[in-house]
C-alpha cells in the first residue's frame, strides 16, 4: 500500500447561504478501506459526500483524489474551476449510490448499467452488455436485466444502482444513506451486496444509519457533529469508547441494537 491515501480531505468548508454546513473537514480514505460517516441528520455527512463527487462545490479546503484536487486546478498559485468536461471526467472515477436509487426511468436495468460504459468509457455495445450482465449477476438480478425500474422493488432498484456504479470500475464508491428509503425487509439484501463489495476490496465511503453494518464492515468510522469531525477511529474505539456526550447520546439512540455493547 502506498503512503498516499486514495482520498484526502483537508479543511473542507461549505456554506449554503449564511449557514455553514461544513466547518473544516479533515478525512482520509486509503485504498481498499471502508470508511463510514455517522452522525445526526444535519451534521453535514451527506453534504460532504456530495462535495466529493462535485454535486456540491466546496468553498474552501481541498479534496484530493489520488493526490489530484477535485473540482479545480492551481494555476500560478490561484484556484481555477475546472471545465464541466474535466469535472465529468473526475466524477467518472468516483461512483455514487443514492438514497432514492435515481435509476434512469426510461432504461431497463441492463441499459442503466450500460449507459456509462458506452458513453463515458467508450466501450462497445456487446462488451458493455456483457459487463452489465456480470454485475447484475453479482447483485443477484441476472433475471431482471430487461426490467424497467418501475417493475422492480426498492431493494432491487438499489442493487441495480450499485451495479451501475461498480460497473464503471471507480476508484472510490460513495454510498449516501442507501437503505434509508427502503422497506425494512429489503434493507438486508442491499447491505449484503455492500458487504460483499467491501470484502472484494472496493474502497468505500459510506453515510449510513445502519450501525450494525457500520460497526461490522468499516475499517474506520467518522462521527460528525455540527459540520465538524467530532471523533474518528476504528469502529471498536468509536462505538465502545465514545469520548463525548454527543457521541454517547447519538449511539444511545441505537442502544439495544448492539446487544452486549455498553456505553
Amino acid at each position: 500500500m502506498s503512503d498516499q491515501p486514495l482520498l484526502r480531505a483537508q479543511g473542507v468548508r461549505k456554506s449554503f447561504g449564511s449557514v455553514e454546513v461544513l466547518k473544516g473537514i479533515d478525512l482520509e480514505v486509503r485504498q481498499g478501506q471502508v470508511v463510514s460517516l455517522i452522525g445526526a441528520s444535519g451534521s453535514g455527512k451527506t453534504t460532504f459526500l456530495r462535495c466529493v463527487n462535485l454535486l456540491e462545490e466546496h468553498d474552501a479546503g481541498d479534496i484530493l483524489l489520488d493526490g489530484e484536487p477535485i473540482g479545480y486546478r492551481v494555476e500560478n498559485g490561484r484556484r481555477r474551476r475546472l471545465s464541466e468536461t474535466r469535472v465529468s471526467a473526475q466524477r467518472a472515477r468516483i461512483g455514487m449510490v443514492f438514497q432514492q436509487f435515481n435509476l434512469f426511468p426510461h432504461l431497463t436495468a441492463e441499459e442503466n448499467v450500460m449507459l456509462g460504459l458506452t458513453k463515458v468509457l467508450g466501450k462497445g455495445k456487446a462488451e458493455a452488455r456483457e459487463i452489465a450482465g456480470h454485475w447484475l449477476g453479482r447483485v443477484g438480478l441476472e433475471a431482471r436485466r430487461a426490467h424497467y425500474p418501475y417493475q422492480l422493488s426498492g431493494g432491487q432498484q438499489q442493487r441495480v444502482a450499485i451495479a451501475r456504479a461498480v460497473a464503471m470500475e471507480p476508484r472510490l464508491l460513495l454510498f449516501d444513506e442507501v437503505t434509508s428509503a427502503l422497506d425494512p425487509e429489503l434493507v438486508a439484501e442491499v447491505l449484503g451486496v455492500m458487504q460483499q463489495l467491501a470484502g472484494s476490496g472496493m474502497t468505500m465511503l459510506v453515510v449510513s444509519h445502519e450501525m450494525l453494518f457500520v460497526r461490522d464492515v468499516s475499517h474506520h468510522v467518522v462521527f460528525m457533529d455540527g459540520g465538524r469531525v467530532a471523533q474518528a477511529g476504528p469502529p471498536a474505539e468509536v462505538f465502545d469508547r465514545p469520548d463525548s456526550d454527543r457521541l454517547r447520546g447519538f449511539l444511545g439512540r441505537f442502544h439495544g441494537m448492539f446487544g452486549g455493547v455498553r456505553h
Binding site: L54, R91, N102, F104, L115, V120, A165
Partner: peptide, 25 residues
C-alpha cells in the same frame, strides 16, 4: 433533479446528460 445527479455521477458530460437522460425523460 435526481436523474441529472445520477447522470453526473456516472460521468456523463453536460450535453450527454441532456441527450441520453433529460430529453428522453
Amino acid at each position: 433533479k435526481q436523474y441529472v445527479e445520477a447522470a453526473k455521477a456516472i460521468g456523463l458530460r453536460p450535453w450527454q446528460r441532456q441527450r441520453y437522460v433529460v430529453l428522453p425523460v
